[in-house]
Every structure is written in structure tokens, then in C-alpha cells.
């Protein structure tokens, strides 16, 4: 791919102004924020189910205007620091998808499923700040959403390539755009000054063994992504399950017995999650 085309596309990606989300989610969050008795915890819980709102909140709180860029990875902390006033402006500036395709809903559910699985893995391993692993899981496919919004003309070409050449969505992205959503994630994380642990989870979830700074984060997101596919919750763009990097299990010291325990626990949680209807 010609370097200038790549630079031009990167520019278009980073110029993203508004990311749309599902109408139902936005409606629920707006209602909660307007109620005088709502607590930060309630609102944080709801926002933690939506990748677009979560990304916007983290982008805002880590912006240099507030004076502590790259420090906040938790939605709850972000809401305490931003306040409901700023949150309202984020809600107002968020649009909804005018046309709801099945794929958009599918990606939304896949992200939520991945977030939940990441949280469970982190808690099982007794990692500090399990919530931050869930945040990285929620945002791991943000690059796909941004690409859809900013490079809409390439979206159908990617999907077509997946179907015709029987390759993964990531490989198709690289074939069509010249870069994958993992790379887009890294650009966005830098541009929005997201904390380094979140950035690593977002940009290395397909190659967790190569993560340098926060290998645990990358490995947890990798496994969360895998689990959401195993339980067939939502749709990531690929039919079937991705390759589970054995190194991820090794780095996290997950034994086969742990893995079974995890599968049991997640199967209950995915059943519960399936009862939630946001679409």
C-alpha cells in the first residue's frame, strides 16, 4: 500500500468527531442521568455496557484540559472526575445509528460479551483493578466501529473479502485498508491519550505474546475475545472462533483446571447477559 494513501486514511480515522451508538442505550443513560437520585455507580454500570460512550468518557477525562492525561482507565473514576454536567454534554453530542444493521448490533453485543469475560478472567486471576480489564475488553474492537464510520466505502469491501477469500476479518482489513483494527486502536489510544494499559490491551489483543508493557492486559483481552466467540454471543465480523494463542495462557499461568472453571462460570454469565435487551 502506498504510504500516502495510508497516511491519508489514518488522518481520516483520527478526524472522527462522533461515534454513533444504539438508540436504546443512549436513551437509558440519558434517563438515568436526568434522575436526581441517580448515583455515579449506577451510571457507570450502564455506560460500561457501551463501547462508544465508554470510549468518549475516557477520551474526555484523559484530555489535557483536565490536567491528568493518560491516568484514568476506569469509567467510575472518570465519571467522578467529569461530573454529570460534562456527561450530559457527551450524551447530547452522541448520535445514534440511523440504520441499524445486524452487524452493528452484533459487534455491540460481542464487545459487551468480551468485556464481561475479561472482567471474569481478571477476577479469577486476582489481578488488580479487574474493571480496567473489562474496559479494555469493551473497547477492543473500537477500531472496527471507527473504520465503519470514517471509511464507510471500505466496509462492504472488507466484508466481501472475508466471504470470498475465507479469511479472518482482521486479515481482510489489512488486505483492503492496509492496516487492521488493532492498528487503528493504537492510533486512537495515542490520539485520545488513553492510559498505556488500555492501549496495550486494545492494540495487542490479536498478538498478546508480543505486548511489552502490559502483557497481562493483552492476554486477558485475547482470551475474553475468544470466549465471546466460543459462547457465540454477538458477532465480531468472523464466523467461528479465532486461534487461541497458547502463550496467552502461559503468560497468565492459567492451568487446564482453571480454564474449565472459567468456562463454567462464563456459561452462567452469558446466559444472564442474553436476557438483557438493548436493541
Amino acid at each position: 500500500m502506498a504510504e500516502d494513501l495510508r497516511t491519508e486514511r489514518k488522518g481520516r480515522i483520527l478526524a472522527v468527531r462522533d461515534l454513533p451508538t444504539l438508540p436504546k442505550v443512549l436513551e437509558e443513560v440519558s434517563k438515568l442521568v436526568e434522575r436526581p437520585d441517580s448515583t455515579t455507580e449506577q451510571v457507570a454500570k450502564l455506560i460500561s455496557m457501551d463501547q462508544v460512550l465508554s470510549a468518549k468518557v475516557l477520551k474526555m477525562v484523559n484530555s489535557p484540559v483536565y490536567g491528568f492525561p493518560g491516568r484514568i482507565s476506569s469509567i467510575g473514576h472518570a465519571l467522578v472526575l467529569l461530573g454529570f454536567n460534562v456527561l450530559r454534554s457527551i450524551i447530547v453530542s452522541t448520535s445514534v445509528f440511523e440504520v441499524m444493521t445486524e452487524n452493528m448490533v452484533g459487534l455491540w453485543e460481542h464487545s459487551l460479551g468480551c468485556a464481561m469475560a475479561c472482567g471474569s478472567v481478571a477476577r479469577m486471576l486476582k489481578l488488580k483493578d479487574a474493571e480496567e480489564y473489562a474496559v479494555a475488553g469493551l473497547l477492543h474492537d473500537l477500531g472496527k466501529v471507527v473504520a465503519t464510520v470514517q471509511l464507510p466505502d471500505l466496509k462492504s469491501e472488507i466484508e466481501q473479502t472475508v466471504a470470498e477469500r475465507d479469511i479472518s476479518y482482521l486479515e481482510a482489513e489489512r488486505a483492503v485498508m492496509g492496516f487492521g483494527h488493532d492498528r487503528i486502536n493504537a492510533w486512537l489510544a495515542d490520539h485520545w491519550k488513553l492510559p498505556a494499559n488500555i492501549k496495550e490491551g486494545l492494540s495487542y489483543h490479536h498478538k498478546p505474546h508480543l505486548a511489552q508493557l502490559y502483557p497481562e492486559m493483552a492476554c486477558v483481552v485475547h482470551i475474553g475475545d475468544f470466549m465471546a466467540r466460543v459462547f457465540e454471543y454477538g458477532f465480531s465480523g468472523d464466523v467461528g472462533v479465532n486461534y487461541l494463542q497458547p502463550e496467552a495462557l502461559k503468560i497468565l499461568k492459567i492451568r487446564p483446571a482453571d480454564f474449565e472453571k472459567l468456562l463454567d462460570e462464563l456459561s452462567d454469565q452469558f446466559v444472564e447477559l442474553a436476557d438483557l435487551r438493548f436493541t
Partner: peptide
């Protein structure tokens, strides 16, 4: 950074 964070917590909490 810590002072900015502290100010933000106090402002938001006191206003809320």
C-alpha cells in the same frame, strides 16, 4: 496532576 484531580473531585462532589 494530583491537585487537578483533587480539585475535580471536590468541585463535582460539592456541586452534586
Amino acid at each position: 496532576e494530583v491537585l487537578m484531580m483533587t480539585a475535580r473531585i471536590i468541585v463535582n462532589t460539592v456541586r452534586a
